[in-house]
């Protein structure tokens, strides 16, 4: 399953709820305001580090760049563009948006 999260972990619990429901082999893609969660040295980044042991973490590069945080993304997450988003959706049998 591919999970998408589009809100910051400070605004809503969708990020935490997503991580609590992601299973081994799933992928989590942070998009829109969700990308802030992948900033280095933050509490959500620590949670992502934990999650990354079982789940693949991706961030949407155009959203990262738009928000001026391109140089501050934690190690271990992969950047994808919209085509990469499409690939992830195609690779996983279902897509769950944590709205």
């Amino acid at each position: 399953m591919l999970h998408t999260v589009n809100k910051t972990p400070y605004e809503r619990n969708s990020f935490d709820s997503c991580l609590a429901h992601a299973r081994k082999g799933d992928a989590v893609l942070l998009i829109e305001d969700g990308v802030y969660a992948a900033m280095k040295g933050t509490a959500p980044a620590k949670k992502l580090e934990q999650a990354a042991k079982a789940v693949a973490i991706y961030v949407l590069q155009p959203d990262v760049e738009a928000r001026g945080i391109a140089g501050r993304i934690m190690d271990g997450v992969k950047l994808v563009d919209y085509a990469g988003f499409v690939d992830l959706a195609a690779e996983h049998p279902t897509v769950q948006a944590w709205l």
Binding site: E32, D81, Y82, A83
Partner: peptide
């Protein structure tokens, strides 16, 4: 909401990839 823009970019990218 950016959701609309992301939906458009996703749709466009999917079409460009031949989906």
């Amino acid at each position: 909401h950016q959701a609309v823009d992301t939906a458009y970019q996703f749709t466009k990218a999917a079409l460009e990839k031949g989906h």
